[in-house]
Structures are given as structure tokens and as C-alpha cells.
Nucleic acid binder design. Structure first.
Lengths: 186, 186
DNA sequence: CAGTTTTTTCAATATGTTCTGAAATCAGTG
DNA sequence: CACTGATTTCAGAACATATTGAAAAAACTG
């Protein structure tokens, strides 16, 4: 209650940074990246690495590495501070664009690889059936595998659309999806 | 090429299972859960734990734990096999419903917690400003923090809608989002 | 309900990831 | 271009997570 503004800000940053850290960690990034981004995002001025280290309780090395990652992903950038010796960093603020870029670079690759690999698996079974027609286990597996492949392709389209346009609607493909869920039976 | 159907199936399962393992691992589950689900999903008959262990190269213990998780999440279930001593397991096939349930139980909680914590941080700053009106750093931080809170709330709504209805459209809220991205300046 | 097989549990271990601390490198400045 | 301070790098420590292996528990079967 009767705390200084400085103390209040510190507490607020701590709460927000830890929360964001959890979220990005869940998302496959280092928690410290989320913490640092939040710290920068909530600062009215760019901060140098040593201040970041001090406020996040991280070593200089860890801060350097996390900043490197943040710059790589375009989640933070260097800010020119007039007569400053140290480099100063500031958070990218266009959260929407950040999310889109990350999704494009990570999820899209991941799902793309999945499509390729499922395709290969389908091919393996098709070849096998060509040589040994009528094998029931193989036929069953092929059917299901085609379902997985279809699902992966749908996922790819979804993610791609989201990354490109920033919109994400399932409606056009719900028919295909509900078909998929609804059994190539057991 | 000239392999037995059995060999072909084994190769196809391996490819598909590893792929799915990667995907679910990226998603925060154990890779072995994805591998086992895929193995079951591609089998025409339910499989007992020892067969799963043998085909996935996991120990009996690991299989038991992974199956436990799969059952918990409703991603697999026990199948009654007539005169069988061992328990047999089979994959849940309604992929769509599985994804929805997982999102509801995990993402929704995660984002919900974020909303709570950002709210608390906002409260902290509001209190501070009540006692120390006009502090510029605090004002700046409060503004940005409100942006994060708004974003988290939007995310919550999105995830909730997706979990409930299975549809996911950003259109209704794009105004709010683009506003957010477009700067409470630096 | 005793014997047998299956399943679960859990401490120890293996694996993978992030962080530290200090040395090496790099960048400004006089 | 040498000096000072800032930054990066990286081997090892700390930490987190997944798996093993074996013992305990549970579930069948006769």
C-alpha cells in the first residue's frame, strides 16, 4: 500500500514478466526470453544488458544469449541511445506480427515435415500393397495413415493461412475434419 | 521394395510414430505418448502393454506411465478383448475432440492464469498511482500492461470459443488486435 | 486363497536444457 | 593503437524431465 512508485513498478514487472515467461516457455521458448521481453516492453526507455541482468537476476552470459535469441526472432531490437557507451535494447511492440512470424517459421516447418513423413509412410504401404495385394492389416493401416496425412495437410493450410493473412477460420474445412474424426472405424 | 507386408508396416509405423512424437513433444507432451498413440491408431486390433513396449523400444515402466497419461487425457482407452489375460489398449480416434479437450484443459487454464496475474499487476500500478499521482514511468507501464491484459483476454476468448464450438475466427476482434499492435508508442 | 502373471510405482539413472562464471573477443576512446 | 569497458562464448554446474530396472502391488486363474 504505502510503497514507492519504484517498488510498485518492480512488483508489477515481476508479476507480468513471470507470467509471460511461463507462457513463452509453454510455447517452446526459454522463459527468460519472455521475462526479458516483458521487462523491456514495460520500460519507457531502452535498457542496457547489465540493467536487464540485474533486474532479472540472470548472469551477464544468460542475458547475452537471451538477447541474441530475441534479436534473431525480431522480438527485440537495438535502440540508438545518444551518448551511450552500452548497447540498449527495446522490445518489439507489434505482438501480432511477432506471433505470425514465429508461427510461420516454426509451426509451419514442423507441420510441413509431418506432411512429408506421413506421405512417405503412405507410399511405403502403397508399394507393399502393390506387391502383396489384399493384405488386410496393411489396408487398414493405409486407410488410417491417409487420414493422418489429410489432417496434417489441413493443419498446414490453417497455419499457413494464419501466418499469411492473420486470420484463422476452420469453416471451409470442417466437413473434412468431422469426417476424419468420425471414423474409419475400428 | 521386396519386403514383407509386415516389414513395410513396421517401417510405416516407425515413420508415422516418430513424426507424431515430435509434434506432441513440441506441444508439451512426452514424445512417447505420441508414439504409442500412433502405434495403437495404426493397429487394427488393440494391443497389450508388452507388445507396445517391444515395438516402441520402451521399458515396461515407461509404457505403463505413458499409457496412464494417455488414459487420463482420454487419448486412449482399454478395450475388452474376449479371453485375454493382459489388458489391451486402443487409440481414441476422434482427433478433433481430443484436441479440443486438451486445449480446454491446458491452454485455457494457462491463459486464464495470465489474465489473473496481469490484472493483479494492473491493480498494483493503479494503487500506486492513486497514492503518487502523475508518476510518468508508472503511467507508461500501466498503459502497456493494460495492453497485455487486453491481449490475454482476447486470447482467452479465442481459446474458449475454439474449445467450445471447435471454430476459431479472429474477425470479430481484429480491430482490437490491430489496435494493440499499432502502438502505445515508445 | 495360493500361485502366477501383469501392472504400477519409484529411486536411481540417463538425457536434455538453461545458466553461470570466467576467459576471450570486440568496440569504442583518448 | 593501447587501454578500458562491454559483449560474447563456452565448458562445466545446476536444473528439469524422461526412462530404466527392479521391487511392490494388483489382478487373474485354478
Amino acid at each position: 500500500m504505502n510503497s514507492t512508485p519504484e517498488e510498485a513498478r518492480q512488483r508489477a514487472v515481476g508479476l507480468a514478466a513471470d507470467t509471460m515467461g511461463e507462457i513463452v516457455a509453454f510455447w517452446g521458448f526459454k522463459a527468460s526470453m519472455g521475462r526479458i521481453w516483458t521487462l523491456l516492453y514495460l520500460s519507457s526507455d531502452p535498457l542496457p544488458a547489465d540493467v536487464i541482468a540485474q533486474r532479472t537476476q540472470l548472469s551477464a552470459g544468460a542475458v547475452s544469449m537471451a538477447l541474441h535469441d530475441l534479436l534473431q526472432w525480431g522480438i527485440a531490437d537495438r535502440a540508438m541511445v545518444p551518448g551511450a557507451r552500452k548497447r540498449h535494447y527495446r522490445a518489439a511492440t507489434d505482438v501480432w506480427a511477432i506471433v505470425r512470424r514465429i508461427i510461420r517459421q516454426r509451426e509451419l516447418r514442423l507441420v510441413g515435415r509431418a506432411v512429408e513423413r506421413f506421405s512417405e509412410a503412405v507410399r511405403v504401404l502403397e508399394d507393399s500393397l502393390a506387391n502383396h495385394p489384399g493384405d488386410p492389416s496393411t489396408q487398414f493401416m493405409l486407410q488410417r495413415l491417409r487420414g493422418l496425412l489429410q489432417l496434417a495437410r489441413i493443419g498446414y493450410k490453417l497455419v499457413e493461412g494464419f501466418a499469411d493473412v492473420g486470420t484463422f477460420t476452420l469453416d471451409p474445412i470442417r466437413g473434412a475434419l468431422s469426417y476424419f474424426g468420425r471414423e474409419q472405424h475400428a
